[in-house]
Design a binder for these strands. Structure first.
Lengths: 158, 158
DNA sequence: TGTTTATTTGCGTCATTATGCAAGTATTGA
DNA sequence: TCAATACTTGCATAATGACGCAAATAAACA
């Protein structure tokens, strides 16, 4: 189970993107420098970029279930570690199901758990998530061919 | 099928969070002003916050499959609209499967499609994704109880 | 018009997963 | 030690989803 990095975090900082040149459809018509655009998706697939590791399906797998997404939102808004039984009061599913969902979210790195006596508190890993989401946004931004890297805000950049 | 907003985008701007106060476990011990922390997850669930709409499972559902994630990364790195058959050369699954995957991604708002003759080009919706991911990061940040909103970078904020 | 190319869709199959119930484990308190 | 509390895990079921193949649609071309 791949999960969100426990330490560091940022894989991709805001930066000027690859080739970008004029971009737009006409594939790789220009010279083939290191930073030029891959001519085809097949070439692109062979290239390594931050987006490859950041677009980790395991994280999305954890968040793709409506019940789990609701649990995350709930715990996030609560702003503190919440016990399984507390959380179970928020939704209509059985407590055992909630327990399983929280386990999935913790293994994916979305939540962290802390046991205190017989109670287990699950809390949102805010920093890890915020860092990851921003890195992912930057990774997409790096790939964007629109003239947004030079400072102009194609992707809503300030 | 809920999908990424076609227009505007940003639902949540960087801002000082809710109550935040001292935070940490001791639930709602203080007065119950509008901006105080919800005492329990159940109370938290009743509150509306940007994270509720931004933590949309449909987007994550689209990205939770390894094949789809790879397709998105591939098209993103390519930086242009790619045809179904082009994209199919990047992965081992049948072309019909690729077509279905691209359809799922487009319906979720991750990709957009453009038909040209008998060819359909799928391209990444960079701006929508970057905006959404940053909004989601901000939405988590808003909920974070650590003393990060005041300018100190708890969540990797500059 | 008939053929080739590009993509989508119907269908059956196999694997995964969400769920509830019941039973099990762990911890606290009487 | 026994009972209550808090949570996890085993199991069966139903639903969903990914996949390949074949057929259907759509557009260009001879």
């Amino acid at each position: 189970m791949t999960q969100i990095n426990k330490r560091s975090g940022a894989d991709s900082k805001p930066a000027g993107r690859h080739g970008a040149r004029d971009a737009r459809h006409p594939a790789g018509a220009g010279r083939t420098t290191k930073t030029s655009r891959p001519a085809t998706p097949k070439h692109a697939a062979a290239r390594r970029a931050p987006i490859d590791s950041l677009l980790n399906p395991d994280l999305f797998r954890a968040l793709c279930d409506p019940t789990r997404a609701a649990l995350v939102a709930c715990i996030a808004k609560c702003g503190r570690g919440c016990s399984v039984s507390e959380v179970a009061e928020c939704c209509s599913v059985d407590l055992s199901v909630v327990s399983r969902h929280l386990g999935v979210l913790a293994r994916a790195g979305v939540l962290e758990s802390r046991k205190e006596g017989r109670t287990v508190y699950y809390a949102v890993r805010y920093t890890a998530l915020v860092t990851l989401l921003r890195s992912l946004a930057n990774a997409f931004h790096e790939c964007c061919p629109e003239g947004c890297g030079q400072g102009g805000g194609c992707c809503g950049s300030p």
